[in-house]
Computed example of a mutant assay.
Amino acid sequence: MLPLHIKNETSRLRAVVLGTAVSNGPTPNIEEAYDPKSLEHILAGTYPVEKDMVKEMEAFYQVFQKYDVTVFRPETIENYNQIFARDIGFVIDDIFIKANILPDRERELAAIQYVLDQIDPKKIVRPPEEVHVEGGDVMLWNDYIFIGTYKGSDYKDYITARTNTAGVNFIKELFPNKIVKDFDLVKSKIEARDNALHLDCCFQPVGDTKGIIYKRGFREEADYMFLVNLFGKENLFHITRDEMYHMNSNVFSIAPNVVVSERNFTRLNNWLRKNGFVVEEIPYAEIAKQEGLLRCSTLPLIRD
């Protein structure tokens, strides 16, 4: 049995599901784009190709090997994008929550069924249909659960709005002893530089006390100020609109002092090193074109 255990984003990682770019399928057509950034690259003819993305994910896999992390990969679905494992489920404490994702992506859960079979069935939860909540919007920080959402009355019109108020309430009921704090995120169907697809696109803790944040990703300044007050402004690395677009907040922690980051994130990586982190730099710029990066590609199961 897999003894699930996730309390935060940064404790020493022991087991993880890492997505796969194998048999990723052809470049989607315009109608099939899930987000404005993918659309931008489809239109520009710069959408990433499979062999490049496989190479990037292999580099990520090698870092996990280096730190002796148990890695599970999804079973391959022919011609299908299975890179972003974070969207299909997530673990809080010792509970695996299956996400109600976009209907087209239901098959991705079946591809990790062999992993789910190693978990106590009483510890696997499937929210009711009206509950939308994706792993990229759910972030654990010990006693806190941070959840990205979109409260606009036009929620249903946005394919980029992935977690609804029902999702927030569902998590509150499931974890009554946690402090659940939701954040209303800025969404755009057309401009990737103004679209916080998930909470991890504009905020993520690193280490025990620090974090990466993009102020304009929050619709309400009060939500941004909540994090500033909680972490302390001096502990937060503020990223620019362009750095948000390139997914600088979507790094991944293997331990409190070890962060996997994209090799082009020069300003961020220098700040991390200056603050005592070991930065494992890998190429991930092709995958980033699909509005997802390192955290999006992982589904952590066990941390110390």
Rank of each mutant, 00 (worst) to 15 (best):
A166C: 01
L39Q: 07
P176G: 03
R241Y: 15
K215E: 14
A222K: 13
A161N: 02
S249Y: 02
P103S: 13
F84P: 07
V278L: 11
Q204K: 13
A255V: 09
P48Y: 05
Q113H: 06
S11H: 13
V49E: 13
E173I: 01
G89N: 10
E286H: 12
N164S: 00
E234I: 08
E173R: 14
H238N: 15
I213V: 08
I213E: 02
Q82R: 01
I92R: 00
P74N: 03
I30S: 13
L109H: 05
P28C: 05
R73E: 05
F237K: 10
C296L: 00
T20R: 02
V138Q: 11
Y245S: 10
V49M: 10
T160M: 04
V22Y: 13
D120C: 08
V16A: 07
I97C: 04
F252L: 09
N248A: 13
Y80L: 12
R303I: 13
F265M: 08
A196Q: 10
P256Q: 06
A44W: 14
K122P: 00
T209H: 12
I6A: 08
A44F: 12
D242N: 09
T266D: 15
W141V: 15
K181Y: 07
K122G: 05
R162D: 13
N250A: 03
I179N: 07
Q204V: 14
L116I: 09
G136N: 01
R263G: 13
H198F: 00
N229Y: 08
N270L: 14
V69R: 00
F90L: 03
E243W: 06
R295H: 13
V71Q: 09
D87N: 04
A196T: 14
M247I: 06
E56G: 09
E286V: 00
E32T: 02
T27W: 01
A166G: 01
Y34S: 11
L294I: 03
F252K: 03
I179G: 03
K7H: 14
Q82A: 04
P28M: 02
D200I: 04
E129C: 08
V279L: 12
F170A: 02
T10V: 12
Y47G: 11
P256F: 04
H198I: 00
V133M: 06
L2K: 08
R303Q: 09
L299I: 04
V49Q: 11
Y284E: 11
L116E: 06
S188F: 03
Y214W: 14
F175I: 03
G152E: 02
T298N: 14
P283S: 10
R105W: 02
G232A: 12
F84W: 07
K151M: 11
K233Q: 14
V259C: 01
R193L: 10
M1I: 15
D304E: 15
P26M: 07
L2P: 05
A166R: 03
L294F: 01
G25I: 05
D304W: 09
D182C: 06
E40H: 15
F64V: 01
R162A: 09
E221C: 07
D182G: 02
V278C: 07
R241M: 15
D223R: 07
N269Y: 06
V17P: 15
A192V: 02
L197I: 08
K210C: 09
A99P: 00
A192M: 04
D154P: 14
E75H: 10
L293T: 15
R303P: 01
